[in-house]
C-alpha cells in the first residue's frame, strides 16, 4: 500500500513557506510579545497517503492544521491544492473547504450540544446547497459507515453518546462534504485505548475506501508511526525533520527526533528507560531561541547552532532534517571536535 502510494500518486496538497505569528499582550503599556507559532513551514502530501505531524505543546502542529483549513489566515506562504494556488477570496475558500475537512480533539466541544447527531452531519452539505432529504440520506449512510446504527443514533444529542461514539460522529460530519483531505488534530488522543484502536481501524478502512489523504496530528509517536506514510517532526514552530515513516523512526536524523523517540515509555518492564534523553520543558514559542531553536536542550549544540539557522539537508530518499550536527556536508558538522 505504501510503496504504491509513495511512488505513483501526485501531490494533492502543497504548503510553502507558511508562517504565522500572533501578537500577545501589548495593551496598557505592557510590551507586545510575538508568538512565533509557525515559522516557514513547507511540505507536500501525495494523494492517498497519510502525513503524520508530531511534536510537543507549542510546536505549532495545531496552528498548522488551522492554517491549512483557512480558519486563521497566514502571515505569508502559499497553499496549493491539486497544483492550484488557493486564493483568499470567499468563493474560492468555500469551494476549497469542501476538499479539506478536520476532526478535532475534543469530541464533545466539536458537536453543537443543541443539535441532533443527524442535524450536525447534515449542516455542512446543506450549506453547500444539498437539499434536506438528500443530506439526511447521506448522513444516515455515513453514520452506518462509521459504525453507528442510524435508527438508534440519528436523533440523539451529543451528550447521550460516549466519547468514542461522538468521535465517530465527528468523522462522519467531516466526511459528509466528500473531502479529499482530512486533518485529524489529536482526534484519538482523548479516547480510551480500546476505543482508540477501533477508531484507528475505522480510519484506515475509510481512507482506503474513499481514497482519502490524511494529515494526522498527534503527540503519540506510536500511533503516528502506525498510521502514517510520512512523518513531520515540529519543534517550536519549525520543521526539524520530515521523512518516510519507517526511515525516520529507524534512522532519526535530528537530535530532537531521537530524544522524542527515546522518551516513549518502554512497554517491557524488563527493558525500562534508564535515563531521560533530554532535560527541561519545551520552551515557550514566545521569543524562541535564535538560530536552531533546539540548541538550549541539545547535547550536540555548538556555537554555530546558536548563530546560524540550519537549513533542511537530505538525510535519505524524501527524508530531510534541519541540523548542522547531523549533516556530514555541513561546514559546521565537526565544529569543536577536532580538539
Amino acid at each position: 500500500m505504501m510503496e504504491q502510494a509513495t511512488t505513483s500518486s501526485r501531490y494533492i496538497l502543497e504548503v510553502a513557506g507558511m508562517t504565522k505569528h500572533f501578537n500577545v499582550g501589548g495593551s496598557f503599556g505592557k510590551s507586545r510579545k510575538v508568538v512565533q507559532a509557525v515559522s516557514d513551514v513547507s511540505f507536500r502530501i501525495r494523494e492517498g497517503t497519510t502525513l503524520g505531524i508530531v511534536g510537543e505543546s507549542g510546536c505549532g502542529k495545531s496552528t498548522t492544521a488551522r492554517l491549512i483549513m483557512g480558519l486563521i489566515g497566514m502571515d505569508c506562504g502559499d497553499l496549493l491544492f491539486n497544483d492550484r494556488a488557493i486564493g483568499r477570496s470567499a468563493r474560492e475558500m468555500k469551494a476549497f473547504r469542501r476538499q479539506v475537512q478536520m476532526v478535532f480533539q475534543d469530541s464533545s466541544a466539536s458537536l453543537n450540544p443543541r443539535m441532533t447527531i443527524e442535524a450536525s452531519i447534515m449542516f455542512g452539505p446543506m450549506v453547500h446547497g444539498e437539499d434536506r432529504a438528500e443530506a439526511r440520506r447521506n448522513a444516515h449512510h455515513l453514520l452506518e459507515r462509521v459504525g453507528l446504527d442510524p435508527a438508534r443514533f440519528a436523533g440523539r444529542y451529543p451528550h447521550e453518546l460516549s466519547g468514542g461514539q461522538r468521535q465517530r460522529v465527528n468523522i462522519a460530519r467531516a466526511l459528509a462534504l466528500k473531502p479529499k483531505v482530512v486533518i485529524f488534530d489529536e482526534s484519538v488522543s482523548a479516547l480510551d485505548k480500546s476505543v482508540e484502536a477501533q477508531v484507528l481501524n475505522l480510519l484506515i478502512d475509510l481512507k482506503r475506501e474513499m481514497n482519502l489523504t490524511y494529515i494526522f496530528i498527534s503527540h503519540d509517536l506510536n500511533v503516528v508511526r502506525y498510521i502514517s506514510d510520512h512523518v513531520m517532526v515540529m519543534y517550536l514552530g519549525k520543521v526539524v525533520e520530515h521523512g518516510p515513516s519507517e526511515a525516520l523512526f529507524a534512522n532519526p536524523a535530528h537530535p530532537y527526533t531521537r530524544a522524542l523517540l527515546a522518551s516513549m515509555p518502554s512497554l517491557d518492564p524488563e527493558k525500562r528507560t534508564l535515563s531521560a534523553p533530554i532535560a527541561g520543558d519545551p520552551p515557550s514559542p514566545i521569543d524562541p531561541p535564535q538560530a536552531c531553536r533546539f540548541h538550549p536542550r541539545c547535547a550536540l549544540a555548538r556555537p554555530s547552532c546558536l548563530a546560524i539557522n540550519p537549513a533542511l539537508f537530505d538525510a535519505g530518499p524524501e527524508h530531510v532534517a534541519a541540523c548542522h550536527r547531523s549533516d556530514p556536508k555541513s561546514p559546521y558538522w565537526t565544529e569543536g571536535e577536532a580538539q
Binding site: S162, G164, S194, V195, A197, N222
Partner: peptide, 24 residues
C-alpha cells in the same frame, strides 16, 4: 489481553489493530 493488543506500539505499522469490540 485485549487492552495490550489494542495498545499501539512500535513495530506494527500496516497491521490491523486487534481492538476490543464494544465499549466499557
Amino acid at each position: 489481553r485485549g487492552l495490550l493488543s489494542s495498545t499501539i506500539h512500535g513495530a506494527m505499522a500496516g497491521e490491523r489493530v486487534e481492538a476490543i469490540p464494544g465499549m466499557p
